Amino acid sequence: MLETFHRFRGEAFGLILEDLARLPRRTPVVVVGFGLLPHLMEPLLTEPRHAVWPLPTPEFRQVAFGSRALPEGTFTRKSDPERADRDIALRDTMYTRRLHEETARLRLPAITVDGTMTEGELAERVSEVFRL
């Protein structure tokens, strides 16, 4: 699942860039999404501090997804919904691990999101990276 999920392979990256190119140049923008892979972003950054990757722990992700209302039948259409849920959690954990390794290798900022910070504290950490 990890190797074939298109967003994890950067296939939508060009579309994201096209959307961003249509925005006024002076407009500050925060872009979040699976397709913003560090190795694709790094050549476009004038400074490493112009990007930050929030990296959720598996436990935080489980709590976050458990609290969301998913569209009816999201996993019930699967022959084994519990296994599908476990497989997606494992895929996302592996993806986050890759992002952690890649941001470290490229010396790009990342923030571990584990649920111990409040939303305000997380916003403060992001603001520190962006020097706002």
Rank of each mutant, 00 (worst) to 15 (best):
P43F: 06
T96Y: 01
E72I: 06
V32R: 07
T74F: 10
P71V: 07
F34P: 08
L106H: 07
A110N: 14
F65S: 09
T27K: 13
T96S: 08
D87S: 07
G73H: 04
R61F: 07
V52D: 12
E119N: 14
E102M: 12
M117P: 00
L55K: 05
T103V: 06
A89W: 05
H39E: 15
L55F: 04
M1S: 09
A123F: 12
V32C: 14
E47H: 15
P56G: 01
D19E: 09
R131H: 12
R107E: 15
L23Q: 06
T112R: 09
E119D: 15
V30C: 12
M1I: 08
F60M: 07
I88V: 14
G115M: 00
P38K: 08
D85V: 15
L36V: 10
E42R: 15
G115S: 00
A12E: 14
P71K: 10
E102V: 09
E47I: 08
R125V: 09
E11W: 04
R131T: 12
R25G: 05
G35T: 14
E3W: 08
E72Y: 10
L2S: 02
A12P: 02
E11Y: 08
S79G: 11
H39M: 12
R131G: 12
G35A: 14
L90M: 11
L122Q: 06
E72N: 12
E18T: 01
E3T: 07
T103C: 10
T96K: 04
L132Y: 10
R91H: 08
D85T: 14
R77M: 11
R131F: 08
L17T: 00
L106C: 05
L40V: 01
L70Y: 11
R9H: 09
S127N: 13
L122Y: 05
V29M: 01
R22M: 00
I111H: 03
E128S: 13
L122S: 02
E18N: 02
L122F: 11
M117A: 10
L15C: 03
T76E: 15
T4K: 00
E18W: 00
D19K: 11
T103D: 07
H50Y: 11
P24R: 02
T76G: 04
V52N: 06
R125N: 12
R125I: 05
P71M: 09
F13P: 00
A64W: 13
R107K: 15
R131I: 12
E121A: 12
P43W: 07
A84F: 00
V31H: 11
E82H: 07
L20E: 02
